[in-house]
């Protein structure tokens, strides 16, 4: 089994925590993991991405070559489009549909949605709205929506959440688990 995943969004939206949860779950299953991220100046409110590769075979490069990503998981609709050159022909885009507008020339959201609609496989939904209802973060809801495509048992993701957020207390663990379940069940 091999999954190459581009996680993307806007600096500070917690996309790296999603990458960590998937990595942790994969490592627990005895798989190989490589997860590349960007720190520093690029983080400050700009476009950010993380390359996550999990595989039962050895992984070579830390970054995914263009045209090879199985999944693009994006916390922001325009950012999902920015990383399309990485998408494999049968790859899927899973994105939050709620735009994050921190630039003056953010495009017309209808045009962004039209581009997403052209894709062969795309799941676009308002993860932030679902997150708000349960007082969680949108990135965790997205992770839940991506779960069926990851080929990792849902239980394993919950275990990873417990391991990673355990020190922050039971309430945080529960909120995050509730969020990924809500994402999984979202239509």
């Amino acid at each position: 089994m091999k999954k190459d995943i581009i996680l993307c969004g806007v600096g500070g939206d917690g996309i790296v925590s999603v990458a960590k949860i998937i990595s942790d779950a994969a490592l627990n299953l005895g798989m190989n993991v490589k997860q590349s991220e960007i720190h520093g100046m690029s983080q400050r409110g700009g476009s950010v991405f993380s390359h996550l590769r999990i595989s039962s075979e050895p992984i070579f490069a830390d970054v995914i070559p263009e045209g090879k990503a199985d999944i693009i998981l994006s916390s922001e609709p325009m950012e999902a489009l920015r990383y399309l050159p990485f998408l494999a022909p049968d790859g899927v885009v899973i994105t939050n549909s709620d735009p994050f507008v921190n630039i003056k020339n953010y495009p017309d959201i209808e045009k962004v949605n039209a581009e997403l609609a052209k894709l062969k496989k795309c799941v676009s939904f308002n993860a932030n709205a679902i997150a708000k209802e349960i007082n969680a973060r949108g990135n965790m809801v997205l992770l839940g929506a991506a779960a069926p495509y990851l080929e990792i048992e849902f239980d394993e993701l919950e275990k990873a959440i417990k391991a990673i957020f355990g020190r922050k207390g039971d309430a945080v663990v529960e909120t995050n688990i509730k969020a990924i379940r809500a994402g999984r069940d979202a239509k």
Binding site: M41, Q43, G45, G46, M78, E79, L81, N105, Y106
Partner: peptide, 10 residues
């Protein structure tokens, strides 16, 4: 349609 989103002050 995609525009640049350069890093910015928070």
């Amino acid at each position: 349609v995609v525009t640049n989103r350069p890093p910015a002050l928070c």
